[in-house]
């Protein structure tokens, strides 16, 4: 089990590096849908999302001046948020007793 924990930890650090550092080097060209929309004349029907005023909109930590730092921090916050939400969801799904195994599992409340 410890090995699995180590694996997950290393993988998460890798994801943090990709989102926090690697993303700076990502292409900023419009993606396939955006480019198609512009080219086919329906790009202008896109409306700003209600979340457009979010302090992290467009993967930019708006309170930080430096572009590189700002994008990296946004990526790191995103990874941590996704990790927290998925972990809680998995915990809830696993905790809910299945009809066919109502008996409590000995290994369930490990963390």
């Amino acid at each position: 089990m410890t090995r699995t924990r180590t694996f997950v930890l290393i993988g998460t650090v890798l994801a943090l590096l990709i989102a926090g550092v690697g993303s700076w080097y990502a292409s900023s060209a419009p993606d396939g849908l955006e480019a198609t929309a512009e080219e086919q004349g329906f790009g202008s029907t896109a409306r700003d999302s209600a979340a457009a005023d979010s302090p992290l909109a467009d993967y930019t930590a708006s309170w930080i001046g430096d572009d590189r730092l700002s994008g990296g921090l946004a990526g790191v916050i995103g990874v941590l948020l996704v990790l927290a939400l998925t972990s809680v969801l998995v915990l809830l799904v696993r905790r809910r007793p299945a009809a066919d195994d109502a008996a409590p599992r000995a290994d369930a409340p490990r963390r």
Partner: peptide, 9 residues
Amino acid sequence: GLTAVFVFA
């Protein structure tokens, strides 16, 4: 959790 964060990143 790792799969989700990896896809996000």
